[in-house]
């Protein structure tokens, strides 16, 4: 078995979150260097605000101002900050009970060293210079007995949305079976595999035959021509599109394969593509090949007579 191929997989998106009334008031206050909470059904002041009471599930709407100073309830030391965290130098994660609040807020404390951290210590908010109405308007907390900066009223619109970037980094691994297929492609070969149980030829091969639950095994080299089973004509432009519409996305069943895959059919007008049309691969120049099916730029008609419906009807 060949070693599986792997490659980075980046998952990144800036999520746009609408806040609703309760969170909107909290975020708007942060922009003004003020911290607010909400009063719970039992009278407790929740900071950060709870939209719904943790005990009764009632919506909570009574806004209560609290101080920008408070006391550390517990903490841990982040010796090596991770991407996205409030500080890029060692800091403490802490639950901070703000003066006037009954629940603690999680944030960072810029203490410099764990030796300067202790439960019960006084801290104050260090406000971010540029505030947008987000929890990150609190840049962090800092050890201090002094008050934080004064509120700064603004006449801006209420904050109703936040943008939350999510950036995650993964390593994606192809299965061993798919890897041998991909390596074959890098050499211009189409390597399928046969399921030892049902005898069907899969391209790409599978770590488990979907009907038998066992890996496909015996290698079967397939030709680069086959039949269009079905298709659609893409007329809609969308993000990341490579070709100008209209063009044809078609299921191509290679001769000798038992499963079709989706690819492009070009080389004729879109409205000339038919179910049953015989097609062949048009490969990119060899120097552009890699371990990917994209080595085949597209399929084009061979000009042979169409395949009879019966020869592909069980693949629809």
């Amino acid at each position: 078995m060949t070693k599986p191929l792997s490659a980075p997989l980046e998952v990144g998106f800036d999520y746009t979150r609408s806040l609703g009334p309760t969170l909107s008031r909290f975020m708007t206050a942060l922009r003004q260097r003020r911290v607010t909470g909400v009063r719970g059904s039992d009278g407790r002041v929740h900071v950060p605000p709870a939209e719904y009471d943790p005990v009764t599930a009632e919506p909570l709407t009574e806004v209560v101002d609290v101080a920008s100073t408070g006391v550390v309830r517990s903490w841990s030391w982040a010796a090596e900050p991770l991407e996205g965290q409030p500080l890029d130098r060692p800091f403490a994660w802490a639950l901070v009970l703000l003066d006037g609040a009954d629940t603690a807020l999680l944030h960072a404390v810029d203490a410099g060293s764990p030796d300067r951290m202790r439960t019960g210590m006084r801290v104050r908010v260090r406000w971010a210079d540029d505030r947008v109405g987000a929890i990150t308007d609190i840049a962090c907390f800092e050890p201090s007995d002094e008050p934080a900066l004064e509120p700064l009223d603004d006449d801006g619109d209420p904050v109703t949305m936040i943008t939350s970037p999510v950036r995650l980094h993964y390593r994606h691994t192809a299965s061993a079976e798919e890897s041998s297929f991909l390596r074959g492609l890098a050499e211009g070969r189409l390597l399928g595999q046969r399921c030892p149980a049902c005898g069907k030829v899969y391209l790409p091969p599978r770590p488990a035959c979907p009907t038998d639950g066992v890996p496909t095994a015996e290698e079967v080299e397939l030709p680069d021509h086959g039949t269009v089973t079905t298709f659609c004509i893409v007329n809609v432009p969308f993000l990341g599109q490579r070709i100008t519409p209209p063009y044809v996305a078609a299921y191509v069943l290679l001769d000798g394969a038992d499963i079709a895959f989706l690819h492009l059919v070009l080389g004729c007008a879109a409205d000339e593509v038919r179910m049953g049309m015989r097609v062949e691969a048009v490969w990119k120049p060899r120097e552009e090949w890699g371990p990917t099916l994209q080595n085949i730029d597209h399929f084009r008609p061979t000009g042979e007579p169409d395949a009879p419906y019966d020869t592909y009807s069980q693949h629809l």
Binding site: P48, E83, L106, I135, I162
Partner: peptide, 8 residues
């Protein structure tokens, strides 16, 4: 996702 995750 509003109050905590943005701090990662």
């Amino acid at each position: 996702p509003y109050l905590v995750t943005p701090l990662w």
